[in-house]
Nucleic acid binder design. Sequence first.
DNA 1: TTTAAAAAGGGGTAAATCCCCCTTTTTTTA
DNA 2: TAAAAAAAGGGGGATTTACCCCTTTTTAAA
Lengths: 212, 212
Amino acid sequence: MKYSVVIVEDHILLSQALSGLVNGFAKFKILYICKNGKELLTRFKDPKNIPDIVLMDINMPIMNGIETTAALKEQYPQVKVLALSVEEDENTILKMLRAGAKGYLLKDTEKSILENALIQVQETGFYHTKDVTNLLLGSLNPKEENNVVLKDREVEFIKHACTEKTYKEIANDMCLSPKTIEGYRDSIFEKLNLKNRTGLVIYAIKSKLFVP
Amino acid sequence: MKYSVVIVEDHILLSQALSGLVNGFAKFKILYICKNGKELLTRFKDPKNIPDIVLMDINMPIMNGIETTAALKEQYPQVKVLALSVEEDENTILKMLRAGAKGYLLKDTEKSILENALIQVQETGFYHTKDVTNLLLGSLNPKEENNVVLKDREVEFIKHACTEKTYKEIANDMCLSPKTIEGYRDSIFEKLNLKNRTGLVIYAIKSKLFVP
DNA sequence: TTTAAAAAGGGGTAAATCCCCCTTTTTTTA
DNA sequence: TAAAAAAAGGGGGATTTACCCCTTTTTAAA
């Protein structure tokens, strides 16, 4: 009996190609393919559709890999999630692992490594490369953390700040006084340790608050 | 006799998976896989390694799809290039087509469409979806074009401008007078129709001059 | 229900940015 | 080689931004 695998990935060509790859492995077969997390959760309502392993992309529209993994951990803890991504950003990897992923694979890997990872996840419950293990160790000592909490209003302001508008114009758009806006800016600068608006824009883009 | 296809793609998992897909098509077989354009050109030195079709990713390190396609058009015009990308940015598509690609496929497509595209490219010399055709038609009337040429010095300045440095500091780092830097800025603003540094940062990131 | 905190708004100032318009030197190119 | 274009440098002023420190109102918590 083969273990069942579901692929959640928005790029159809990749998911179909991956599907072929996995079906070629001795111990695994693809149950079905989803384009995003929402679709997956809908499918799961039928117990027949619950696989042993979910191969999950991180960047997806509608419901991304992190949210979806967290939801699975909550509702279907027996399902093992193997994250699959081009993303090598430390924070994203950590978020994914915290959300409950059992392993993290870069898309830039050999198919034999994928097979190995699937076997390990199924048999031992987790799979981690040396890199990710080091990352985990490094994250144990909390050091300087970005546990900064941005308020909704501030996040909205940041999005406006990523345009050519002046603060006055932003204030106008958000129906606030320019001075309030400057207050937002100042407190954000302080929280995030930024020097100026350029730094804010870079931060917003890095943290995906704003997509250029 | 099957037509030969070479895949140029930096994500190994995707290229291996694609490879399996294409080998499953009746009329095509994969000759080999490359991780970037440079590797491809090296391989081409042996005439045995020259395929009918190259399936080319656009975003690659070392030598990207556009440069590579241009080089192939120059040196091996008989090889047909089919571009493959997640990129849906109009300008990139146009650049790729101008460089000589015979078709443009999104990674977000069915495998049957890939097979179809390969067949059409091989038999008729090109494959274009309705979207791309419309884009081509649209680009005929030159309208407002971004044929702006940025000088080396200006590009270097832009990279510095994507940090928290002031212009004075940038001038210092580039061993130029602050006034020269302001001159760069002003001429860039004019050429690119920007209003302020924020706009410049967004432009730099969009056009990949700066990667956050 | 008092107390404390966020949230919203503000004043003043120094620095940075933007936007003109201008000269000298170097490099192209016709 | 003369003319033109590009690169480097600059002056002055208006605007915007950044950074203090301060008040009122609203919201949450003890």
